[in-house]
Structure formats: structure tokens, C-alpha cells
């Protein structure tokens, strides 16, 4: 947390957003579509990073927040026929409430116990989705009907299934969340979080209520992840239990570690990297997971703090 002038980081982030916007005009169709998906999932990773990167709490259960948003939004459309904005809000609210409950329980623990407790709650959430299969579609999942995925704003209506609208919505979501995280990280509250990460006892002695600070962080993190899930359901039209499985709890951890924990842009870089490694290698060999595995190990050997984390450490100390 260097006290550099705020101009540089904000300029960088605006630059990234402008670059992503410009890319939407030049990218070939396929990469255009893929990048829209990556931006939505990068939001998931940013939510994870809030807690893991800045507070140092390693959760293995964030798939439940993502899928709370996914199901909250998706089922509201499917069963209740809600409009897109209402369903989106419902998804976010589901995630926030779940995060509050889980936070109150899980924050009684710390370290590895926190990791296991969150993993088990996520497992419960996953099983609950399977148990109520008549509403959730169980493991098969459900399709959010295409006609319902239209955003009506006054007299104009935006079809969320059109690639341009989808890209723009994903970018808007990504940008808003990016700027919010940047603001949080640079705020006084953000510094308290880092202080908790570095030394919780000392922070407590300095008079901070670490529990409620951490609880807020869990809720913020869960809400961001749920936002990503809700957007995923509405933009891509499918809700399914595989998004609640432990694999989807490990993925954001992986993305964040690859990109650089506690860096605001790291989640995007990590998600982007992982997607393209899989996409490119699967074009050359059917044994692509082997190459992905080797790539991960090489990366971590040479960039132990993740891509951006290592860059910050070596060259650009001011990176937020």
C-alpha cells in the first residue's frame, strides 16, 4: 500500500476499460464472445480476490455465492417470470444474504478451518440444489428462456442474446466492479482489511472491530460473486448445479493466484490467461490438461506471486 498519487492507478484502470471497449470493435466474433464470458467470470474472481487477496481469508466455497446469484436470477425468471432487472437484483440479494449467514458462522474460524468450513457449506448448498431438483433442474440444470432475456428500458429493449449487447453489458459490469474494488482497496476500510491480513491481533489492539470488518468483507465479496453469477444466468441463459461444485470454488482461487492476489487487475489477467491456455492448447492436442498443468507449475515457479503480483514486486510498485 504505497501512498502514490491516485492519478496513476485510476488512469491505468480507465485505460484498461477503454482498451476492452475498443477491442469490441476489432475482435473476431469468437474472441469477442469469449472475452464477454471472461469478463463476467473475472468479476467472480474479483469478488474472490476481495476476501482472499485483501483479507487473507482462503475460502473454498465461493461457488455457492456465484451459484446463489446464478439461481437467484435464473429461477426468478423461469418460475416467477420476473423481468431482467428484477431477476438480476434478486440474484444479487440472494448472494448477499447467503454471504451474511455464512460469514457470521464461518468467521468464527480462521486459516485452514475457514477453508474447510466454507467448502462444507458450499457442498451443502450444492446438495440442496440437487435435493430440490423439481425446482432447480438438479444436475441437468435449466434453460433461461431466450424470449425472457430482454432488458426493457423505457421504450427501448435490449436483447441480451445479441453479441454486442452481451459484450457491452459484460464490460459495463466488469468496469463498475473494477472501479468499486479499486475504490475500496484505496479507502481507509481497504487499509484496515490489509492490516487484518498482516496482523489481526495488532489490528484488534489498535481498536478495530476485526470481526465486523471481516464480515463486511465476506458480504462484499459474496455479493460481487453473486453479481457475476446473476449476470451469467441472464447473459448466457443456463443455470446448472455444476457451477456450485467444488471445481468452481477452486477456479476463482486459481485465477486470482495466477493473476496476482491483492492486485485489482490480477483477477482479469488470471482468468484471461487460464481461458486462453485451455483454448489454445486444446487446439493442438487432446491431452491439453497435461500442458495446462505444466504451464501452471512453470508459471508459479517463475512468478510465485502471480503475473501482476510479480510485476508489481519487481517493477511497478504503485500497482494497486
Amino acid at each position: 500500500m504505497k501512498d502514490a498519487s491516485p492519478a496513476k492507478p485510476y488512469a491505468l484502470h480507465l485505460g484498461v476499460i477503454i482498451l476492452l471497449f475498443a477491442l469490441s470493435f476489432v475482435l473476431p466474433d469468437y474472441h469477442h464472445g469469449l472475452l464477454a464470458r471472461i469478463m463476467v467470470l473475472a468479476v467472480f474472481a474479483m469478488g474472490y480476490n476481495m476476501l482472499f487477496g485483501y483479507v487473507g481469508l482462503l475460502s473454498l466455497g465461493h461457488a455457492m455465492f456465484f451459484s446463489a446469484g446464478l439461481y437467484g436470477a435464473g429461477l426468478a425468471v423461469i418460475h416467477l417470470g420476473w423481468s431482467v432487472p428484477a431477476a438480476f437484483a434478486a440474484g444479487i440479494l440472494c448472494g448477499a444474504l447467503l454471504a451474511l449467514v455464512i460469514g457470521v458462522l464461518a468467521l468464527r474460524t480462521s486459516g485452514v478451518a475457514f477453508m474447510i468450513v466454507t467448502m462444507m457449506f458450499a457442498q451443502v448448498f450444492y446438495l440442496v440444489i440437487l435435493y430440490f431438483a423439481s425446482w432447480t433442474g438438479g444436475d441437468q440444470g435449466m434453460v433461461v428462456p431466450q424470449p425472457a432475456r430482454v432488458l426493457v428500458l423505457g421504450s427501448t429493449s435490449l436483447d441480451l442474446t445479441s453479441p454486442t449487447v452481451r459484450y457491452t453489458s459484460a464490460l459495463a459490469l466488469f468496469s463498475i466492479v473494477l472501479l468499486i474494488t479499486l475504490a475500496i482497496v484505496r479507502s481507509r476500510y481497504g487499509r484496515v482489511l490489509v492490516a487484518i491480513r498482516e496482523n489481526e491481533e495488532r489490528t484488534k489492539m489498535l481498536g478495530y472491530d476485526t470481526f465486523s470488518n471481516k464480515l463486511v468483507a465476506v458480504v462484499v465479496s459474496g455479493t460481487i460473486c453473486a453479481t457475476s453469477g446473476a449476470a451469467y444466468a441472464l447473459l448466457f441463459g443456463y443455470v446448472g448445479s455444476s457451477f456450485a461444485s467444488v471445481q468452481y470454488s477452486i477456479l476463482p482461487l486459481l485465477w486470482v493466484l495466477l493473476g496476482g492476489a491483492a492486485t485489482t487487475l490480477g483477477p482479469l489477467i488470471g482468468t484471461l490467461f487460464m481461458y486462453y491456455v485451455v483454448d489454445i492448447t486444446s487446439g493442438f492436442t487432446s491431452a491439453y490438461l497435461l500442458i495446462v498443468g505444466i504451464a501452471l507449475i512453470l508459471l508459479v515457479l517463475f512468478f510465485p506471486k502471480g503475473i501482476l503480483g510479480s510485476i508489481r514486486q519487481r517493477w511497478l510498485g504503485w500497482l494497486p
Binding site: L258, A287, Y288, L289, G293, V300
Partner: peptide, 13 residues
């Protein structure tokens, strides 16, 4: 964690 996830992929593949 990242490295052992990498090992997981390699061994599985």
C-alpha cells in the same frame, strides 16, 4: 496450491 493444482491436471491427464 497452484503447483499442486497443476500436478492434479498432469496426473489426471
Amino acid at each position: 496450491i497452484v503447483a499442486t493444482i497443476g500436478m492434479l491436471y498432469i496426473i489426471q491427464q
